[in-house]
Design a binder for these strands. Structure first.
Lengths: 242, 242
DNA sequence: TAGTTACAGACTTATATAAGACTACTTGAC
DNA sequence: GTCAAGTAGTCTTATATAAGTCTGTAACTA
């Protein structure tokens, strides 16, 4: 409940947490508009400015999106957002390229110890494994190995695995109600294996950029482990430090 | 001048730009406190809340730093900030390690075409070139090649080049009045040259992570080009996407 | 009549101000 | 030295007004 007074959390923080809870719980779905600042303020017994401050912080975290004159909306994963926010590989000129994807395999397995650790699962838990090659500027450039906790993607097997969409986060959201909100990436340089080499048309031993990403929901629980191995001859990973 | 009324920019944006100008111009130096919100509001003829909103945005950009009960300060580069904000190499456990550095060479040259382009200089402009090896967890892990525009670092040669400080951004700020505020990085996987290999105790051809960074001031003008080649056997580059 | 434009009103977020609460440092009494 | 009050800073909340967006209806045109 919202409480005011000495020693209590500031109102706007209580309200921010309340809004997060509503979204995590699924009361408000991605793409939906939330009640107006005025409505919320009356409902919660605080002023519009206080609700506004709470909302502002969530807009900064990319949880909400405001449109003046229209309302405030829960962020969703259109492919634009996925491309601009989560995809950091660009071409030599620094332009973002929409990748396309060819799925090589898609099957269920047991998690290895390392996978279980990174996804916070029990050892040998049920997982889904996807392997695909991605073309950038129409040449094969990345090999992705994606690991998903089986229990979060129950009806996965009903999908046409040969024809998965290009941007998976949109799929997670629409089909499984799971919204990826943030991610932690580790980057390393590795040597291409023979397998890598044949898929990417290069020689074994060629240096590849390996990106290991754990994608998280709003409440920080891991949902996807993705290992990408990229040929950085004509593309590179771009990061801006602000 | 601050102007209100129809068609004018919002007050808080005008004030934000004014504050940025003051800082860029050097009226307020890194580490200094700026006038209080109340003083500024009186001086500028707006309310405290409006000044506050302008300041808030600059705090989010890491330009200013607030301390409740004390004041608002221009951000400066203590080595902590450099380490946490600009240094993304961590050990296998994800812990930040303070690197140490050994300078190999430090001399003046003419800029190559590529360097001039990235630093927005004229071809063959005067530059300073620093090469150093950095140890992480007491083993040689990175080779850095740093390029600085000569005209911005006039008295550089008076420094003891064999004994440069570990965190250069602090030096730029204190000795030359240049504050690094943001940076753009490009990451690639490359093969170690013989030279790399001998410095890092590994075999030629070993994959290295190459980080090419252009560091910028508050008004986006490039100040440093830094190419780091890292052995990612025991360390990796960490990036969080929010 | 059917279709289109103009405009008013309702509802939304955005901006600006003011007042009091909280926090850290300083000063002075003891 | 220690403690308490004072001072000067930021932080929180509330209120009022501006500006943007959509919808329905009245007026106008073909």
């Amino acid at each position: 409940m919202i409480t005011a007074g000495k020693g209590a959390m500031p109102l706007y923080i209580q309200i921010r947490e309340l809004l997060i809870a509503k979204i995590s719980k699924g009361d408000w779905l991605p793409g939906d508009s939330i009640p107006s600042e005025m409505n919320l303020s009356q409902e919660l017994g605080v002023s519009q400015g206080t609700v506004r401050k709470a909302i502002t912080e969530l807009v900064e975290y990319n949880v909400l999106r405001r449109k003046q004159g229209r309302g405030t909306f829960v962020s969703n994963h259109d492919s634009q957002r996925a491309l601009f926010h989560f995809f950091h590989i660009v071409d030599a000129k620094g332009h973002r390229v929409m990748p396309d994807s060819k799925v090589l395999r898609c099957h269920r397995r047991h998690a290895s110890h390392g996978e279980a650790l990174k996804l916070k699962l029990k050892d040998r838990a049920d997982i889904i494994r996807i392997e695909r090659v991605r073309n950038l500027s129409s040449s094969p450039t990345m090999i992705e190995t994606i690991t998903l906790p089986g229990h979060l993607f129950k009806d996965w097997d009903e999908l046409d695995s040969g024809n998965l969409p290009n941007m998976l986060y949109e799929l997670y959201e629409k089909q499984f109600g799971i919204t990826i909100h943030s991610a932690e990436e580790q980057l390393r340089a590795v040597a291409a294996t023979k397998h890598d080499a044949s898929l990417l048309n290069l020689q074994a031993g060629t240096p590849l950029l390996e990106i290991e990403r754990v994608a998280l929901t709003l409440n920080k629980s891991p949902v996807e482990l993705r290992i990408s191995r990229c040929n950085t001859k004509k593309h590179h990973y771009e990061n801006t430090i602000l």
